[in-house]
């Protein structure tokens, strides 16, 4: 009975408003990506350049990852530093 009522109500409003809302959210996101071509690639290159000034790094071991959440997005930077790191710092100073 309640299911039938729900269905009736839903039919009256239609699914177009849902389509419209989904599109607006999706396109806002996709347009953002388009205007910043390969943001992650740029970030990765620049982070690599800054860190390599002080530490010898394997470029392959620098990983930049972005995770988009509904309200907050996280940027994860994972840099693997070789074990000789401390020694090199000591020589440098």
């Amino acid at each position: 009975m309640s299911m039938n009522l729900l269905r009736l109500l839903r039919r009256r409003t239609g699914s177009a408003p849902v389509a419209r809302e989904r599109l607006q959210i999706l396109l806002a996101h996709e347009r953002g990506l388009r205007s910043q071509p390969d943001l992650l690639g740029i970030l990765r290159e620049e982070i690599l350049a800054v860190v390599s000034r002080h530490v010898v790094l394997d470029p392959e071991k620098v990983v930049v990852r972005m995770d988009r959440g509904e309200s907050v997005s996280t940027l994860e930077v994972d840099i693997e530093v070789p074990n000789g790191f401390d020694k090199k710092m000591a020589i440098a100073s």
């Binding site: 409003t13 239609g14 699914s15 177009a16 408003p17 389509a19 419209r20 599109l23 607006q24 396109l27």
Partner: peptide, 16 residues
């Protein structure tokens, strides 16, 4: 169908 809200209407598409 658009007037019944079953299909995106002209204004929706143009606004998007």
């Amino acid at each position: 169908r658009a007037s019944r809200g079953e299909m995106l209407n002209i204004d929706d598409i143009l606004e998007i």
